[in-house]
Nucleic acid binder design. Sequence first.
RNA 1: GCCUCGGUAGCUCAGGGGAUAGAGCAGCCGCCUCCUAAGCGGCAGGUCGCAGGUUCGAAUCCUGCCCGGGGCACCA
Length: 620
Amino acid sequence: MPTRLSTAFVDNAARLAEASAAVTIAPVPPDCQSMRAHIKELVTQALGYLKRDGVLVIDQAPEPEVERTRSREHGDYACNIALGLARVVGKNPRELAELIRSRLPDSRRVEKVDIAGPGFLNFFASPHYLRVVVRDILRAGDDYGRAPEGSRDDVLLEYVSANPTGPLHVGHGRGAAYGASLASILSAAGHRVQREYYVNDYGRQMDILAVSVWLRYLELAGERVAFPSNGYHGDYIYDIAREVRRRHGDHLRHTGMDVAEGLPVDADRDGGAEAHIDALIERARQLLGEQGYEACFSAALEIMVADIRDDLDGFGVVFDRWFSERGLQQSGALDRALKRLEAGGWLYRKDGATWFKATELGDDKDRVVVRENGRSTYFASDVAYLLDKLERCSGTSLYIFGADHHGYVPRLKAAARGLGENPDRLDFQLVQFAVLYRGQTKVQMSTRSGSFVTLRELREEVGNDAARYFYVMRSHDQHLDFDLELAKSRASENPVYYIQYAHARIASVFRKLEETGQRHNLAIGESSIHRLDGDHEQELLRSLGRYPEVVENAAERRSAHLLAHYLYELAGQFHAWYNNSHFLVEDEEVRNARLNLTAATGQVLRNGLGLLGVSAPEEM
RNA sequence: GCCUCGGUAGCUCAGGGGAUAGAGCAGCCGCCUCCUAAGCGGCAGGUCGCAGGUUCGAAUCCUGCCCGGGGCACCA
């Protein structure tokens, strides 16, 4: 197949775009595209030609699916479009494949195209392309694999959003690691990403926190008070109480008698514990007054949020905004959202409460938005926050929930409909649970037993790198067995160390080079890149070239584990090559070509690990 | 009961319409005078839970069943 400059096909593309609305042209120049996207476009254009010339009579050409082949015999990429389209246009698949092939624009990235099996189009990457991969990587550096910002729709990603009533535990850790990695991946794939943590700083659980803190505060002050069974029992409550004492001295002190007098019995049966703690909250409000209560409440909130934030920061998990639920009330956003539902006729009153007609919008039951007691529900805040998000973000509002929250999906979609918004702009990713193992034995997660439960303890035990990687190495959609022993192991069976070791080895090659007084000459390496003809080298080249589409794919499928797997594979290919051949050879062409490939591999490992929040050490 | 995620090698998991189903670990056998053996190579290992269906083609989609995780608040 003769080669033509790729600009030619861009021109073709532009002309075609005018000729046929069915053909859409991506705004990304071909050299920045992943190979997969590039081939997709070649096929799309061929279909466009066939359609324009009346050879194919179709309304809308389907978007071609291009996949990497499993076996080398089938080239590098395969497209099955002819198999799917054959029946629609009444031709046999192989014949159709031949037609498509005949109209494929030339590309220097494609060596040849075969028609195989029942009608697959098999694309073989050109040697030119494979060589250019190394050059591109070394030139783009940290930007290799990054699509231009804004080339995909904007995403507002909300994740973690754990209640600030206690420290993060290992379950939150998975959502945090997954969310942070996904945010980076989406951003690399060209989405503009806003990361948000929704702080539930309003409602009964927060009141219980405030009261728990206050009671511990009284205890520290020397009062004798019974602690409610439904309060927060963790030791961290004492820490907060100490801080409250430091700030407010004895100003919030009342006698144990005054606190306890006339409260319903704290009993497990018949909701006694609930009634007890509610009464306790009321009592705190009375005794402390609005200001005193608020002092206690806000200290508890502030300290807890600061702790969570510090924890996440230490884990490399960051947010652009910490969105306050209370803020929704204060700003009037909540009222506005309810009015919007009201205006659409989606609210009604029953039993003294205000209900949202979720059932008519796809949920399985109606939801209360304002309780009989006049307080709005958590769901009402959710609706208000949703509205706010959809107004602030032109694209997708992406939620990362623990799997136990899956029931929220239909009600939030219903809310979107009720607000008059398109529910397809919401995307929900459910993160399944992680179970910790120490070797073969399951780690019990009870707070009581003192075995570890917090994210911080996990990070301290296995380190941030292992924790970040382990959390995302399985599909988020899948239960995760997290083996602490494996995570700490410094051997090849531990995938994090295996990958990091590959990176460290690469750095060590360059250190060794310097020690021997030699220099890496990029230019010689580039012009000699054709000397990389060994099987291991060819395989590495192919994998390196695949990186951008791995990122693309991981973003589309919201699957960080695809990147984790890829890096593991890439590291494996490097180790195999390393063991199989020497880099610091006499021949200056071969040496520099190999050093270029080595440097490129290091760069891709670094970029990929960076997206996962894992460090790429120079030595280990 | 309803909703949801799953059942793929001894174990942990990829693959989620396509061409001979893949890794790692565990098992067995090999590889350091040489840039990190914290590594590499080889062998062995599978009725893709079961039964139907759709399709030119099903581990993959649909239905039913069996087995497991999780969820179904005027809680947050």
